[in-house]
Design a protein around this nucleic acid. Sequence first.
DNA 1: CATGAATGAGAATTCATTCAT
DNA 2: TATGAATGAATTCTCATTCAT
Lengths: 220, 220, 220, 220
Amino acid sequence: MAYKRSPLMEERLAANRQRILQAARQLVAAGGLREAQISAVAAEAGLSTGAIYRYFPSKAELFVDVLNEAVRQEIEILDVILAGPGSAAEHLAQCVESFVSRALRGPNLAYAFIAEPAEPEVDAARIRCRMMFGDVFKRVLQDGIERGEFPPQNVDASAACIVGAYTEALVGPIAPATRSVRSQDRLIESVRDFCLRAVGATAVPPAKPPARPRRRARTA
Amino acid sequence: MAYKRSPLMEERLAANRQRILQAARQLVAAGGLREAQISAVAAEAGLSTGAIYRYFPSKAELFVDVLNEAVRQEIEILDVILAGPGSAAEHLAQCVESFVSRALRGPNLAYAFIAEPAEPEVDAARIRCRMMFGDVFKRVLQDGIERGEFPPQNVDASAACIVGAYTEALVGPIAPATRSVRSQDRLIESVRDFCLRAVGATAVPPAKPPARPRRRARTA
Amino acid sequence: MAYKRSPLMEERLAANRQRILQAARQLVAAGGLREAQISAVAAEAGLSTGAIYRYFPSKAELFVDVLNEAVRQEIEILDVILAGPGSAAEHLAQCVESFVSRALRGPNLAYAFIAEPAEPEVDAARIRCRMMFGDVFKRVLQDGIERGEFPPQNVDASAACIVGAYTEALVGPIAPATRSVRSQDRLIESVRDFCLRAVGATAVPPAKPPARPRRRARTA
Amino acid sequence: MAYKRSPLMEERLAANRQRILQAARQLVAAGGLREAQISAVAAEAGLSTGAIYRYFPSKAELFVDVLNEAVRQEIEILDVILAGPGSAAEHLAQCVESFVSRALRGPNLAYAFIAEPAEPEVDAARIRCRMMFGDVFKRVLQDGIERGEFPPQNVDASAACIVGAYTEALVGPIAPATRSVRSQDRLIESVRDFCLRAVGATAVPPAKPPARPRRRARTA
DNA sequence: CATGAATGAGAATTCATTCAT
DNA sequence: TATGAATGAATTCTCATTCAT
């Protein structure tokens, strides 16, 4: 009597959900949370407003999910870096570079989610996310201190500082204008070095030489 | 029908304007921009909503002024520090300490104005303000580099990083919980040292001689 | 600095409040709670929707007030009757007659408030109101029993039955069609006598002879 | 392409229809019409929302049918009583007792359908149903008057009063709280006697000798 | 000039009904 | 035929701004 939900439909639903998340993300990136009303998200996703509520119980929860999704991806990448070879300083450098170069590609989104407030629920989620970023750096720092690469220090504070430093410098509103890829690269280097010095890295690792041309398409 | 504006009235108007700015500031500090509706500001200032519009043409402009006012005071203090005696490193340390200890006294205001978005106009003003903060640190850095205290570096980037680092660590949402004055002091020190290391200060200036009568932390 | 609210304005506000209550009452009378949206009430009252919220915090509270107001008036009248001279049976008869003749003048309102459900808050208020009606009759019954006019009985049950009986018969949907004043009078008498017999009144008081022409204007 | 409708299918369709009616009834009983959205009914019936519309053209018509069905059953039972042996007073007493004891088992349904409004169509149906109840009592009254058991009276009015009295007292919101079966029994007796006195029954029939196999109250 | 009541354009959310699969 | 995802009109409530007094 009860039809099994067909794999086709399953796919459509998942696709719709992604479309909604994507639409919300784009709108936030374009104009901040302020511009991302449910009706706008729906229009952007090619659905009706009512449909949104089939996928997300409220506006707040939708944006919490958008945020979590974005951060999850970011954290995953950082985790891969930490799991890879290299000294703590190299890990730190790579993390900063990675995060920042991604942020520069879609600046407003990163900023909006790092700095923009909204419903209390979204705000709470944002705090959790920033903590997650902080935790990644805390691990790098602890690792570096154990290895003797970094001097002893308050790792909580340093981790927060690192997150603050690079978000402010690179995606925050006072980020020095960086029109060319070239100047972006230099900015990234400067920030990376700032962070390395800040944690007391004894030897700053050389900039990865073949850093730039690697941009691979998102959809394999 | 046409009143000549007496000096007495002039004074009253100025006083009202200050009361409004002060009320707006308090409300933001207490609950963020979200809680600072015009009617609430008016009530707090002991005026009517209509009166607000006699002093400020719109909500946005009011909060732009609130922000500018707050930042102006802050910048003044930093300017005094820079004009005073001491090495660049000492200046830097004092600036960070000063800003942060003030921020810790009224956390939400500092955070709201550093990170909270609003109308585009307010946002623009916030960016200008952060730039002003950045400029102060830029001057310290340039000074330090000229004096040979700091190594050459991208002063724009470093200045932004410093602002980002301490705001994130001290007034941002991931600021490690600091219940006691003691732990706040230690946090400030950690951040200050982070910044000093980051700019390559060769000799970290000694911690300000024991300012407070050693109240022991609860957790040994 | 703070203007005193002028008596004129005070009056206007009170008038507006009454207009809103009146508008809500009319709409309910005309089409039930279903038809009484805030926007319709506002239009009927000659105000904007926003204005309603200056007088009532929510739709539910507005209708609770409408209900309470209507019931308060009714109860007041019943209280006057009880305080007046006469036997318990006469009191009972007068109460039923009074309530019913009023209800017949604005039928739907009475019914809507007796029988129509709405937000839980309004529902709760309605229950309280029905209890208030029941309490009036309970007092009559207790009085009559003490005086030996009525036989001992479950006064709670009887009071509820009386309220139910006359509301059903006179303002409920199965109220026998009563087009003429004449047939209305007969209906009232029938119901009154039903109630009197039901409580065991030994002598049914004679129908008040000069009952009809008495309709006095509400505003003295 | 065109299926011949097999008897088996026919049966299934009828079963589904009953399931829907039953589900709707349960939901109304549990939470009033307010809680009985089409989707909830569908879920309760184990069907899809769309399926509902294959059996009922609209929500209103569904609930009209639910109501009619419920009332039809009730009326049938009353008809059986009237066809049985006994005086008019005994018939009246049994009718009240029967209706009420059933209503007490599923209180909200009875109340919802007696007093709760909805779409105009449902409302119209409810009025018709109440009239049907009224008609049953009218017959009892006429019978009693003919037999000389009851005094002459306005049977329309009395019938309406009876329905109103017992619904209000027993399933209405001001029904005195009746936790135990014992107190329920006493309430039923009180209401029954009220009705008998009200129609002028000369001799109140003795309480039906212990009719029910004394299911003991849960709370001793 | 001060007041604060009034405005009204939104914004979020609900749910009966439809229709492609 | 059954499904349940999608629709979108309808409704409540908010708040910056205006303007009669």
